[in-house]
């Protein structure tokens, strides 16, 4: 498969990139980091931006550091996932993040894929991540620029386009539970947002920054609030995106355990839930509540290897495993 003709620009430093972004840009820009997700997508969609900005030479955006005040872990978005797993600072202060990075895809992909790319990964759907023949066969969906959602057939163009493409980052739920903040640079200067606010409840664009903006840093306040763990459900123990990912952080609230949960793979965004088991008379009541809340809070659709109902059920199963497996 060939990439359509496009212009690729490879800035050598952040300063060079900043200067370019300040100019009122003509035409569409797409940032290219590791490219493990983007390049296949560009090839398959046959729609490429006018300018592809390859970030690989911007050294300032890669690597893990401790803040001068020693209370924040600073992660460059161009840090490779393989590097994240090996990084001593991560192993010391946020070991689970390194482990979760090691669950992504395969060694070859982890050598190339970046932290920024993982948290900004485009939402996926079996009708969108498809060949041209298949898209002609079914008719292009909203996300592919068409006028239909094959999962929700009665959705039409007259209302807002509907897209339930699912969010599939492994790192995001763990980072969200660690209260990760993003530092974003744009034409108006620098801004900060909580990672959880990056995501929207629709699958069309997934995570998206404003025009001309670039993610320059992830910041994680230390020490971490609770003990964070992650379980990933997928049919193969390598290669696959999460069919479901459950991240759990257990913290103490007045002597009782509080479970902060963040889910991936089952909705258009990472889904944050909080459970207070102490409010239930029995464990069975509690798990029933978890099942009910899971049912209300996430909308998995038939767009993945596993049936939606199974995925929904597995939320409680994995959560139980994480919690009781301490």
């Amino acid at each position: 498969m060939l990439l359509e003709n496009t212009c690729v620009w490879r800035p050598q430093s952040l300063a060079e990139l900043r200067a370019r972004l300040k100019q009122s840009s003509t035409g569409t820009i797409q940032f290219l980091a590791g490219g493990t997700d983007l390049v296949p997508a560009l090839k398959r969609q046959g729609r490429v931006p006018e300018l592809l900005v390859a970030l690989s030479q911007i050294r300032e955006l890669a690597g893990v550091k401790m803040s001068p005040t020693k209370d924040r872990l600073l992660i460059g978005p161009l840090t490779k996932l393989a590097q994240l797993s090996r990084e001593p600072l991560i192993q010391q202060h946020f070991a689970v993040l390194g482990q979760v990075a090691g669950l992504v895809a395969s060694p070859q992909i982890r050598n190339q894929a970046t932290v920024g790319g993982n948290i900004m990964v485009d939402n996926r759907c079996k009708y969108y991540n498809q060949s041209e023949v298949d898209r002609h066969s079914h008719g292009g969906c909203f996300k592919a620029g068409g006028a239909v959602c094959h999962l929700i057939p009665n959705a039409t163009r007259t209302s807002a386009p509907v897209c339930r493409a699912r969010f599939v980052s492994d790192l995001a739920p763990v980072l969200i539970l660690a209260h990760c903040e993003l530092v974003i640079e744009g034409p108006q200067g620098e801004r900060r947002i909580a990672l959880k606010d990056l995501y929207h409840n629709e699958g069309l664009y997934g995570a998206r920054l404003n025009a001309g903006e670039i993610l320059t840093r992830l910041e994680i306040p230390l020490p971490l609030v609770g003990k964070i763990r992650y379980e990933k459900l997928r049919i193969r123990q390598a290669i696959d995106f999460p069919s479901l990912g459950v991240a759990l952080s257990v913290r103490d609230e007045g002597g009782s355990e509080v479970l902060d949960v963040c889910l991936t793979g089952v909705d258009t965004r990472p889904v944050s839930l909080t459970f207070r088991p102490s409010q239930f008379a029995t464990r069975d009541d509690f798990w029933q509540n978890v099942a009910q809340v899971s049912k209300k809070s996430v909308v998995p659709l038939k767009q993945d290897f596993f049936p939606p109902q199974y995925k929904r059920e597995m939320i409680a199963v994995l959560l139980k495993r994480l919690w009781e497996g301490n």
Partner: peptide
């Protein structure tokens, strides 16, 4: 298949076991 079209026409979505399995 979906309406006769193969929906998992890639080695990502067609699940050949990995070495872990």
């Amino acid at each position: 298949y979906d309406d006769g079209a193969v929906q998992n026409a890639s080695l990502l979505e067609y699940k050949i076991p990995s070495p872990f399995e």
